[in-house]
């Protein structure tokens, strides 16, 4: 038995560009999320006391408090960014429970793309908050000798972010697949519930870590 854990099956070739399963599922999740968010926003604007509006408010408040507590700062762009990350990863974990549809986050390329987004958001937020000089000066503190360590820490936490999400999501599916092969129907149901819990927890943790990293970049130089 040699399951294809690290590859990504190509569905269609669009000329020279492959259209893989991960691309299709992640695009579909994004489209569903955008439609649902638009419906919730319309409900809030039109009928303020409806259940849809309450759901939209609750979701927004949950994400805003989550990001604000982790980043320690009011920063609407960060709330939108980290909240979108949470919604995408959580929706991917839920979609991954459907039969035959693996979560896009159980692909290393997809999780690496999410981690690279966080990696790029850190200096962007820092430069927007502190200016180019103010942000990049912190790489030379407390001593210019520590510059390589700063760079290594940024790179290694990006790799850790992507590998943590990938490993958790992929291992859950692997365990469920093994139990299905060994025991058959209904036995893997508790493990699927555990997989769903782990997926939602990983979305929470990814969001908190992204908020902490960006929040630290925003607050660069405040302590000195």
């Amino acid at each position: 038995m040699s399951p294809d854990l690290f590859g990504d099956p190509v569905l269609v070739w669009l000329g020279p560009f492959p259209l893989t399963r991960t691309m299709v599922t992640s695009a579909a999740i994004s489209a569903i999320l955008i439609v649902v968010a638009a419906l919730l926003a319309r409900a809030i604007l039109r009928r303020d006391d409806s259940r849809m509006a309450a759901l939209g408010r609750l979701t927004f408040r949950f994400l805003r408090d989550l990001v604000r507590d982790a980043a320690g700062e009011e920063w609407p762009a960060l709330e939108a960014f980290a909240g979108s990350l949470f919604l995408f990863i959580a929706a991917a974990a839920v979609v991954g429970q459907l039969p035959g549809v693996p979560a896009p986050t159980s692909n290393l390329a997809a999780t690496s793309a999410l981690a690279v987004l966080v990696f790029l958001a850190v200096p962007l937020a820092g430069i927007r908050a502190r200016g180019v000089g103010g942000y990049f000066k912190h790489y030379l503190k407390p001593n210019p000798l520590l510059l390589p360590l700063h760079i290594i820490s940024e790179l290694s936490r990006t790799v850790a972010l992507s590998l943590r999400l990938f490993g958790n999501m992929m291992s859950g599916h692997l365990v469920v697949a093994l139990i299905v092969a060994l025991a058959g129907f209904f036995v893997p149901v508790p493990l699927m519930a555990l997989d769903l819990l782990i997926g939602l927890l990983q979305a929470y943790i990814f969001t908190i870590l992204a908020s902490v990293y960006v929040g630290a970049a925003i607050r660069v130089g405040e302590e000195s």
Binding site: A160, L163, S171
Partner: peptide
């Protein structure tokens, strides 16, 4: 999650 990630690696 941070500690768990070593086992995940």
């Amino acid at each position: 999650a941070m500690v768990e990630s070593t086992a995940i690696f």
